[in-house]
Each structure stands twice: as structure tokens, then as C-alpha cells.
Design a protein around this nucleic acid. Sequence first.
DNA 1: AGATTGACTAACC
DNA 2: AGGTTAGCCAATC
Length: 108
Amino acid sequence: MHEPRKPTEFENAVYDAVRLIPAGNVASYGKIAAQISRGTARAVGTALAKNPYAPEVPCHRVVRADGALGGFHGATQGPRMREKSDMLRREGVPFGLTEKVDPSAFMA
DNA sequence: AGATTGACTAACC
DNA sequence: AGGTTAGCCAATC
């Protein structure tokens, strides 16, 4: 059995920033990177893919800059993604008709 | 230690 | 409008 490794400092910084996203809002991967002044959108995605603190860390509130959903629990399609969109809808995030998050939902 | 792989993006066709 | 390309940085072979 392989014990999951301890999260790196970068990953912890990502998780801390994600905790601050209020329900009903979303933030892009790139915004998180900018906010912690480290890494890039891709690096944030890599960190979130392994998020060990779900659902305490609301990783479902992190989406792509163009409003597409991105991924959830490491998956970019399939039932996991349907869960992600359901959670956002429950939190009142306005979706466009094209399966994209409305720009008004992004954090300031 | 070098190469590969991602829940990305902006810029270009 | 929608696919492709090239950069990006951290984690993982």
C-alpha cells in the first residue's frame, strides 16, 4: 500500500486560496495562481487533481477561464463532471446555455 | 537529472 | 466559431 505523500507547500497554498471562494461564485485556475503569486493555471490544476481535503476545499468552484468546467476528482468527463455541475447549480451559479459558467459568477 | 504529463491559457489560424 | 500551437510551472516517472 502506498501512503499518499504529504502535500507540498505549493499545493497547500492552492488549497488555502480555494477555501476562500464563496458559495455561488467560482474562480479560474489562473486566478488562483495569481492570487498566491506562484505557479500557473496548469500547476494549480495538477494540484487540485489530487485534492486530499475534498469537500472541505471546494475544488468544484474552480473552473476554466472560458467558463468551461475543467475537471473534478481527476476526471475531465463522465459522472464526476455531472456531479460538479450539479453542485454549482445547487449553489446558485448561473450557467450559460452552452454548459458554461456565466462570467458574472467569477470572484472579484 | 532529463523527459513526460497534466482539472490551463492566450494567441493564432 | 471552433480546432491547433506554443508557452507555462509543478509533480511524477
